[in-house]
Simulated scan of single mutants.
Amino acid sequence: MKQINKLKKEYDDIEIPSELDEMVKQSIKRAKATKKKHSPLKQWSIGVAAASALFIGSVNVSPALAQSMANVPVLGAIVEVFTVQTLTMDKETYQAELKTPAITGLEDEGLQASLNEKYTEENKELFKQFKEEVADMEEVGAGHLGIDTGYEVKTDTEQMLSIARYYVNTVGSSSTTMKYDTIDKHNNILISLPSLFKDDSYIEVISSYLTKEMKQQMADDENISYFAFDGSNLEFMTIQADQDFYITADHKLVISFDKYEVAPGYMGIVTFEIPSDILSDVLVGDTYIR
């Protein structure tokens, strides 16, 4: 951290040559001229290229900047997540907003294309179903219907990227589901829950912990309740082998349950961070969880 701060101070103290002013102006002028001609992904690529040109130019005309940057470690490819498409409907009693994420920068272009295609097709299918339901409801002249999808980057480190995608369906009350993808950027692997463990014994280990944790939380707070549905006496029993999960930046496993899956609706999406020490004997290794 001290080294980073030192480098930052050295960078801030550098006198930027006057030649860069004209370079910046020309880059902005070219960007504006091409803005309407390119897709968001291509615009982003152009921006990176322009930034690279400015960086190279500044090193050429500023030996001080070149000397300073010589001490900065070279970074890998920049992986980013952005909204590539938004599908909308805005009628008096029917609203939809579906935001589709896309990933750019993964070394494995095949994996990247596969994930991006999955995200696009998911939202296309949801929007198609929504429009069909709206058409059916309009025929009978009544009804309220809403759908909302989006995403959140839960983890973005040099090694891992975890993306959460949510889907909210509103018909009177709302239901919410979450889907997660966790990617090993270094090895270009889409990590599944079973792949983290030696065998399926993790199901019992995690389920046992969650049962105790749920009971403890209910004992500590009367406003917390873990049951399958409102008014039900069915208690949580076990996670699924492919239960939704993500991995935090500090290498902790988080198990996620959709709204209504293990608790009344007012609890919403429910997540639990699993202590790594109870998993140590069943993990394949400590690359991801530790």
Rank of each mutant, 00 (worst) to 15 (best):
N60S: 12
I78C: 03
A77D: 13
A70N: 13
P101C: 04
P40F: 08
V84L: 02
T93I: 03
D108L: 04
Q67W: 01
E92Y: 10
A77R: 08
E97M: 09
K99T: 04
F82E: 03
I78N: 12
D108V: 03
G57D: 06
V79R: 05
V61E: 09
L75R: 15
L65I: 00
F55W: 06
K36Y: 13
F55T: 04
S39C: 05
K37L: 15
K91P: 01
A50Q: 13
H38T: 12
K36E: 15
F55Y: 10
T86S: 14
V72F: 11
E92M: 11
A53R: 05
A64H: 07
Q85A: 06
P63E: 10
A70Y: 11
L98Y: 08
G105W: 02
S45F: 04
W44N: 03
S62Q: 07
M89P: 04
A64D: 13
K91M: 10
L106P: 07
E92V: 07
P73A: 08
A51F: 07
I78T: 10
A66K: 10
S58P: 00
P73Y: 02
N60I: 12
K42E: 15
N60H: 09
I78H: 09
W44E: 13
S39R: 09
K91V: 04
A51H: 08
A33Y: 09
A49D: 12
M69P: 00
V79M: 03
A53T: 07
F55P: 01
Q43F: 03
P101R: 01
E80C: 01
L41A: 15
V79W: 00
P101A: 06
I56P: 02
K35L: 12
Q95S: 09
K36H: 15
M69T: 13
Q85V: 02
L41N: 10
S45A: 11
S62V: 06
L75M: 13
L41R: 14
T34R: 11
L54E: 02
Q95L: 08
T88K: 15
Q43T: 04
K37E: 15
G47Y: 08
A102I: 01
P40S: 12
A64P: 03
A77I: 03
T88P: 05
Y94C: 03
E107P: 02
T83C: 11
L75W: 08
I103P: 03
V74Q: 14
V79K: 01
A77G: 11
L41G: 10
A70D: 12
I103S: 06
Q85Y: 06
P73F: 04
V84K: 14
G105A: 05
H38R: 14
L54D: 00
A66P: 01
A33F: 08
E107S: 13
S39Q: 11
W44C: 05
A102G: 08
I46Y: 14
T34F: 12
G105Y: 07
E107C: 05
E97K: 13
T34K: 12
I46C: 01
W44F: 13
K37H: 14
L98P: 02
V79L: 00
G76W: 08
K99R: 14
P101W: 07
I78K: 09
K37D: 15
D90C: 00
V74G: 09
M69F: 08
A50L: 13
L106A: 04
L65M: 05
F82L: 05
A53S: 08
K42Q: 13
V84N: 07
S39H: 09
Q43M: 12
A96H: 00
L41C: 07
V84F: 00
L106V: 05
Y94M: 09
T88C: 10
I56H: 07
